[in-house]
């Protein structure tokens, strides 16, 4: 009896995980549409510099390449953490999350540094339509990264206190989707905003 009940419980749990993950995936798809609108706005307004400097004068490509590689590395460590968690290894999972947090925090610090530098030179979002669109698009991505960092911290605390349960593994899986998704959005920011900005 207890075996049957246990199996039923496991099947229910699996279905709950599948349903919740699908729900989170649909949220990510709607988030893609949000970013699509911001990309469209940026592409339309990118020439509207109001006589001020454009991307060619403002963007520093080596700096942005560094940001890109750091974010990509954090996406990789996040994947490794998830893999360790699915193998039942708590410690490597926590270390992977820690690395993800550190790399993500470095990325966000670099990005905020770039924003402050632009604003310090008088190129804030009020200066032109191009800069409004730039700060909105890149800033929205940065806000997602900030929320992701908070999520990593919560996950680390949960893994330390609760260990690997079906609940924590499920939430870790969703965090993985979120973080990989943000890396994909960044590739398009790197290509459309920065690389095309200096061409």
């Amino acid at each position: 009896m207890s075996i049957v009940a246990g199996q039923e419980h496991r099947v229910e749990e699996h279905e709950a995980t599948a349903t919740k993950t699908l729900g989170f995936w649909i949220y990510l798809m709607t988030d893609c549409i949000l970013f699509a609108s911001l990309f469209a706005t940026y592409i339309v307004l990118r020439e509207g510099t109001y006589g001020g400097p454009g991307g060619r004068e403002l963007f520093e490509l080596p700096f942005v390449l560094l940001e890109t590689i750091i974010l990509l590395a954090s996406s990789f460590t996040c994947g490794l953490s998830l893999l360790a968690a699915r193998k039942g290894l708590v410690k490597p999972a926590i270390i992977g999350l820690g690395a993800t947090f550190v790399l993500g925090a470095i990325f966000l610090t670099l990005e905020l540094g770039e924003f402050l530098k632009l604003m310090g030179e008088g190129h804030s979002w009020q200066a032109s339509a191009f800069l409004s669109a730039f700060f909105t698009l890149v800033g929205t991505h940065g806000l997602h990264i900030a929320v992701g960092l908070l999520w990593v911290l919560v996950m680390i605390i949960q893994l330390v206190r609760q260990g690997l349960t079906s609940g924590t593994i499920r939430r870790l899986g969703m965090f993985g989707l979120f973080w990989h998704f943000l890396d994909i959005i960044w590739i398009f920011i790197f290509t459309i905003v920065y690389l095309m900005g200096v061409i």
Binding site: L61, L65, I69, L83, L195
Partner: peptide, 28 residues
């Protein structure tokens, strides 16, 4: 399965790195 998942992550990471550097190299 776990080994192939690991392989996937490594392959994905390395090819993403190469593709990023290629795009950067083309522009610079």
């Amino acid at each position: 399965i776990e080994d192939s998942a690991m392989q996937r992550y490594v392959i994905g990471f390395l090819s993403a790195l190469v593709l990023t550097l290629a795009a950067y190299g083309l522009v610079v």
